[in-house]
């Protein structure tokens, strides 16, 4: 029983790391650009599918993990520069509708290219199999995933706190007008932010593929979870999004042990508890 619990908690942690990555991506876009990015989920799906194809074509899993999020960034750049940019002064209604439309389009393109049936992407031999942790035998890939996601989160943290661009992004979340006052080219900042958000979504998608497989609806399924992460975290809080993502993953892991049929509902129970007891979110100020 203990083994089951520990392995489920580790599973939950891995899941939580993925949620944290996509959640932070969404938080950046919501916070800096002030737009509801409904295309976030399909960017995640696109990351997974591109990784699958690249891995099959080149035979290198690592190269796929490297390249696919970058291609997603290109898609993100395209969305921002061709559409979203024209809508910053419009109501949220129209921004939302545009991104929703993009989500539909990319979703259908994925089905046209890869078909409506799911795939699975196997981790490379060096990452497959299991590790003996002494008290528990656990799949190697999942363990590596946890470490790698943690590494990425640390990198992101360093980027946001130690670099100029990071400081500008954080200032943008605090006070969007300030960025304009500082004499920074807002268009460029917004473009990079959208790109970074897309990168995190694409990366999380690619990393998730060996665990959860690829289905055309994966983008539609992850999107509400991203938004729950934002609600639990508090709008615009990056550390909040990381912690909320991990918490939600862990609670899903825990639910798998005791109420396997409620793994999806538990996410919303967490959200419900948050808005009842802490309406501004765990780390929200506004």
């Amino acid at each position: 029983m203990t083994f089951l619990i520990i392995s489920q908690i580790l599973n939950g942690l891995g899941l939580g790391m993925l949620y944290a990555l996509v959640g932070v991506g969404l938080t950046l876009i919501l916070g800096v650009l002030n737009i509801p990015n409904f295309a976030h989920g399909v960017l995640y799906a696109l990351g997974a599918y591109l990784a699958f194809t690249i891995a099959n074509l080149t035979g290198s899993f690592y190269f796929a993990m490297f390249l696919s999020p970058l291609l997603v960034v290109l898609v993100g750049f395209l969305l921002e520069s061709q559409g979203v940019r024209r809508l910053y002064h419009a109501h949220h209604d129209y921004q939302l509708l545009f991104l929703f439309a993009c989500a539909l389009i990319i979703q259908e393109i994925i089905i046209i290219i890869w078909g409506p049936i799911g795939f699975s992407l196997l981790p490379p031999p060096s990452l497959s199999g299991a590790v003996d942790l002494g008290f528990l035998i656990y799949p190697k890939y999942r363990l590596v995933l946890i470490c790698f996601a943690l590494f990425m989160i640390v990198c992101l943290y360093l980027f946001l706190t130690k670099t100029n661009l990071g400081a500008i992004l954080r200032a943008g979340i605090e006070n969007r007008d300030m960025v304009k006052v500082l004499g920074i080219n807002v268009n460029v900042v917004f473009l990079y932010t959208f790109g970074l958000g897309a990168y995190l979504a694409g990366l999380a998608g690619a990393l998730s593929a060996p665990i959860m497989g690829l289905t055309p609806s994966m983008g539609l399924d992850i999107l509400p979870i991203c938004f729950v992460v934002v609600v639990v975290a508090g709008l615009g809080s990056i550390p909040g999004a990381i912690i909320a993502g991990i918490l939600i993953g862990l609670s899903q892991g825990a639910a798998t042990i005791w109420f396997p049929e409620a793994t999806n509902v538990v996410i919303y129970v967490m959200m419900g508890l948050t808005i009842i007891f802490r309406p501004q979110g765990l780390f929200g100020v506004r």
Binding site: R86, L87, Y94, F98, L104, Q107, E108, I111
Partner: peptide, 15 residues
């Protein structure tokens, strides 16, 4: 794959 066409129409209307 008709939702693709709907998506394109949505986007055009919004823009």
């Amino acid at each position: 794959r008709w939702p693709l066409i709907m998506g394109v129409i949505f986007a055009i209307v919004v823009l």
